[in-house]
Write a protein that binds this DNA or RNA. Sequence first.
DNA 1: CTGACCCATAGTAGATTCTTATAGCCAACC
DNA 2: GGTTGGCTATAAGAATCTACTATGGGTCAG
Lengths: 316, 316
Amino acid sequence: MDIKQLRYFIAIAEEGSLSAAAQRVNVAQPSLSQHVLSLERDLEVKLLERSPRGVTLTQSGEILLSHAREITRAMENAVELVRQSGAEPAGDVSFGLPSSVSMVLSVPLAETVRLELPKVRLTAIEAMSGFIKTWLEDQSIDLGMLYDVSSVRHLSYTQLMTEELHFFSAPDAWPFRIRAGTAVRLADLAGVELVLPSPHHGLRNMIDRFTRTHGVTLNVATEMDALAQIKTMVARGSGYTILAPAAAYDFVERGELIMAPIIEPRLIRPVYLVRNPAKPVTRASQEVERITLEVIHDLVRRGIWQAMDQSDEDSG
Amino acid sequence: MDIKQLRYFIAIAEEGSLSAAAQRVNVAQPSLSQHVLSLERDLEVKLLERSPRGVTLTQSGEILLSHAREITRAMENAVELVRQSGAEPAGDVSFGLPSSVSMVLSVPLAETVRLELPKVRLTAIEAMSGFIKTWLEDQSIDLGMLYDVSSVRHLSYTQLMTEELHFFSAPDAWPFRIRAGTAVRLADLAGVELVLPSPHHGLRNMIDRFTRTHGVTLNVATEMDALAQIKTMVARGSGYTILAPAAAYDFVERGELIMAPIIEPRLIRPVYLVRNPAKPVTRASQEVERITLEVIHDLVRRGIWQAMDQSDEDSG
DNA sequence: CTGACCCATAGTAGATTCTTATAGCCAACC
DNA sequence: GGTTGGCTATAAGAATCTACTATGGGTCAG
């Protein structure tokens, strides 16, 4: 069983016919016939159901097909990466980031990439997670970050960290009787007017899911799909909001917002770095991925990105 | 670049010499020389540093080697799985389980495997996680479950769920003033005599890590590395313990123990299903893995294994 | 029943991949 | 300091493998 046979087999499976596949891969039909027979002899299973109008895969054929796809892909990837291994990483890398991640990550990541990989052009695309998922699927971006991988198929991901959503208030408009900045209960948030993103937004979906399962109804006075504007409104005392700490680090730093943990329940969400294995990995994207991990680890270590690093198990 | 060349290349890399590799793969030395030159021509990089005493890999060579290993492994795996695809899954599958997992999973898993895969012999091995990790690494077991994958290298894992550790007490020995079964704070546990596993045990390590970072010192009156005995002791009122709900489901069911969530902080730990990608996947182990996911999902759904299913994002 | 289309088989030409023989190189050793 | 031994590279022929053309048998539509 060699790689050429696997390529032929993929073509046969996709065309549903030896003759058509033969045309596609530019060999004579009998050659393909031979290869399939040889495969079947080697593997001791029947791979194709022959009919006078073409062929269909047997169950074993389907299994071989999926492996064949994986192996040929790995092969192409390997060729590409070894080819590029001599030279300095170069080329374009597009990285889809949800706005709250972009907020804290874009600048340090871009700067590090510019320094360490001068020939790589990084395109950091800020978008809602729905778009990022779509772009990953249609291979129009190399890397993406997502909060939710449960509905994700055919993508490979690694969990980077766990973020905990916090309650945000203007310093002079703290609405609760407890000391400003101390933990508030989710149920208490029902009593204040909130500025949140619309339900198109992943963050909002997550908040809605949590409130629904805990029987809390929030009072969403304003819906706004722009992070900066949400923060500005809240900082002026025109409402309150729920965000990841990283999303409002700047305002908190300047003293324009104060944040408080939310408890009962805590609103935690994992953050994933996602790739599409079908898209060839370039040397450049591989290096950007490596640098991303470094930068994130550094941001978390320095407390700028407040989250539980994946390598740190402590949940306090 | 074809698979045969990759196999040759691996042999060359491992032997450090074309001549030695030629003997190993049973071809003449000039043939290998040709193949390497052909690879270098195709990939447009230098793969080997030639010397009069053998060859060493260049950096590109190292990269190719790792891909070559991965691809040949995938190839062998594919052959094996397609070969076995015709027949009913058969053979031995060994599965390493930490005791608290084994407690709740072993019996339903074994029963399901017996029903659905009559020709598969499942060996469920109950052991401390340190052993399971070692066995996975030396490939003496096919599958394993672990709580901690941070120190794990060269193993592939998927997170199954997140468990939350609980406090356990005999019903008539509840030590706190709050109502029995309501959430207790970690700091409060300092006041009671605990029966815990020894520090060899993963659970104990985790508890120690949590208490250390939160400045809590527990009073461990008894160390005992046997789950059943710990529960028996606690059920008699001779102490209290901290376990995952699944580990004591039986005692709680029979009313011999009551459990309470622990808060401030909550003690959560992920549960991973782990494989060694270097160990060939058999059809049988693949099927056991599939059934394991089903059984676990079912146990979680039925509340027997109290945990947050990975597909369910709610953390409450 | 026939023509069109499919896959399988047979035999051959061509390309590839091995082999043996040998050259060239360097290091260690007498 | 030459010689020997071990290594890789090159060359050319032999063996093998692969793809090709030609053809056969089968099924379906008209």
